[in-house]
C-alpha cells in the first residue's frame, strides 16, 4: 500500500493544482501575467471549458496523487459563458468541501473562487493567499493514506 513517503527534511515544497475556466479565470490568469503580477510557482493551472467541467474525481485524484491544495476558479455567478455552468459547480463544490472536511481533511485545502477576465490582480492575490494557507497547513499526507492504517 502506498504509505506516505516521509519527504526528506528539505524545506516543504507545496504543490497546488488550479482548475481555471477558459472564459473567466484562465483569462484572469493571463491578465495577471500581462500585468506582470507575481504569485508562487507551486500553482499549476489546468484549463477547463467551464468550472462545471471539474469532476470531483479530478480533485480527489489530485489530492491522492500528492497535491497539497486544489483551487477551482470560475466566472462570477451570473457571468458564466454557458449561463448556468458555475451554478452547478457551486453546489457540487459546496458538497465536496463539506465532505472533505467531514473526512478530516482540512477544508482550507480545497478552495473555490470567482475571478472574472478583468480581475488580473484578484487572481494573483487569491493564488498568493491560497499558497500561504497551504504552506501553513503543511504537506497533505492524509488523503493519500486514507485506507492504510499505520
Amino acid at each position: 500500500m502506498l504509505a506516505a513517503q516521509s519527504t526528506p527534511d528539505k524545506e516543504f515544497e507545496q504543490l497546488i493544482v488550479a482548475f481555471c475556466c477558459n472564459w473567466c479565470s484562465y483569462a484572469g490568469a493571463d491578465l495577471a501575467g500581462t500585468a506582470r503580477r507575481s504569485y508562487p510557482a507551486n500553482i499549476k493551472i489546468i484549463r477547463v471549458p467551464c468550472s462545471c467541467r471539474v469532476n470531483p474525481t479530478f480533485i480527489l485524484r489530485a489530492f491522492l496523487r500528492g497535491a497539497d491544495g486544489v483551487i477551482i476558479a470560475g466566472c462570477h455567478p451570473g457571468d458564466c459563458h454557458y449561463t448556468s455552468g458555475n451554478y452547478f459547480a457551486r453546489r457540487r463544490m459546496t458538497l465536496l468541501m463539506s465532505m472533505l472536511s467531514f473526512l478530516g481533511v482540512d477544508k482550507a485545502r480545497l478552495r473555490v473562487e470567482w475571478v472574472s477576465a478583468a480581475e488580473g490582480n484578484k487572481f494573483a492575490e487569491v493564488m498568493t493567499s491560497f499558497a500561504e494557507t497551504i504552506k501553513a497547513l503543511g504537506e497533505n499526507v492524509k488523503l493519500r493514506d486514507l485506507r492504510c492504517k499505520k
Binding site: R90, R91, M97, K107, V112
Partner: peptide, 8 residues
C-alpha cells in the same frame, strides 16, 4: 445558493 467556502 450559499458560497462553497462559507458552508463547511
Amino acid at each position: 445558493d450559499v458560497e462553497p467556502g462559507a458552508a463547511t
